[in-house]
Computed example of a mutant assay.
Amino acid sequence: MPRYLRPRLPGVPIFFTVALAQRGSSLLLEEVEQLRQAVRVTRAERPFAIEAWVVLPDHLHCIWRLPEGDTDYPARWRLIKARFSRAVPMGTRRDSHIARRERGVWQRRFWDHHIRDEADLAAHLRYCWFNPVKHGLVQRVEDWPFSSVHREIGGPRWEWAMQDEAP
């Protein structure tokens, strides 16, 4: 079995895409409070800063900063996914889920990207914030209720991230 090695760069913001196993589902919105609770409990045990976060029906995007010297974001995702999975109905399970004692809620892996510089961070902030518009869920970013954009609109980081045109 192939083993995926993730980069471990301390002090660098990290962009993530995490998806449900069943694309097209709306489970993340239906159970958004369970997701928030899983994140809260995990952050209390293993702190990280949230630069941006957007929850869509079947996937989410976020940008984290880990504490200085800490690079263990896979453990945090494992905890968040496990806590959420235990709190919601079991998904459709394949033999591989049963063998690994998984509940069939999440895609097994997640996508991560270590932010290279301020321009890369601004681009990924815009990506998070505009994703509900891209998917046709709303017309304007501020109309999506499951986004960290609401804490940024009109503030200095909003202006800085919006310097280039929106995607």
Rank of each mutant, 00 (worst) to 15 (best):
H114V: 08
K81A: 01
S148G: 14
R103T: 11
I115W: 02
W106R: 04
V54C: 04
T92P: 06
L66N: 03
L79Q: 10
W53A: 05
W111N: 07
L66P: 05
F16A: 03
Q37F: 07
L121T: 05
E102Y: 03
S96K: 07
H135G: 05
D112H: 07
A49L: 13
G69H: 08
G69K: 10
P145W: 12
P167A: 10
I98S: 14
A122C: 08
T71M: 08
D58M: 09
R8N: 11
I80E: 00
K134R: 15
F146H: 15
W64H: 08
F48A: 13
T71G: 04
S147F: 06
P7N: 02
L35I: 12
E159Y: 12
P13C: 01
A122L: 00
E165K: 15
E51R: 15
R100M: 12
R78H: 08
F130P: 00
A82K: 07
G69A: 07
L5G: 02
L35G: 04
V141H: 02
P13V: 04
I50W: 01
V88R: 10
V55A: 11
E33M: 09
R109E: 06
S147Y: 08
V149I: 15
S96G: 00
V88C: 08
T17I: 14
G104Y: 09
V41Q: 14
E31D: 14
P7F: 02
L79Y: 01
L29M: 10
R46I: 00
L66E: 05
F146S: 04
L5Q: 13
D112Y: 03
R101M: 06
L121V: 03
E152A: 09
D95H: 13
Q107D: 10
F15M: 07
R108V: 01
G104T: 06
R65Q: 09
W160N: 06
W111H: 13
E31S: 14
P145K: 10
W106N: 02
R103G: 05
D120T: 06
I98E: 15
T71P: 07
A123W: 09
V88G: 05
A161G: 10
P57A: 05
E68Y: 09
A99N: 11
S25Q: 02
L60W: 03
R101I: 00
R36M: 10
R76C: 01
F130I: 00
A99H: 11
A123H: 11
P13F: 04
G155C: 04
F16L: 07
I115V: 15
Q107H: 11
P132S: 09
R40V: 08
G104V: 08
I14H: 00
D95K: 15
R94P: 00
V41H: 05
E31H: 15
L20H: 02
R43P: 09
S26M: 06
R100C: 08
Q139M: 13
Y127S: 14
L125N: 07
H114R: 12
S26K: 14
G155W: 09
Q34R: 15
D143G: 09
R36W: 12
G155P: 05
P10K: 10
R151Y: 02
A38W: 00
P74F: 03
P67R: 08
S147W: 10
Q37H: 13
A44E: 15
W160F: 08
W106V: 00
D70F: 09
S96P: 00
R46A: 06
G11E: 13
K134Q: 13
F110S: 10
Y73F: 14
G91E: 05
Q163D: 07
A87Q: 10
G11F: 05
P2T: 13
F130W: 15
W64L: 13
A119E: 15
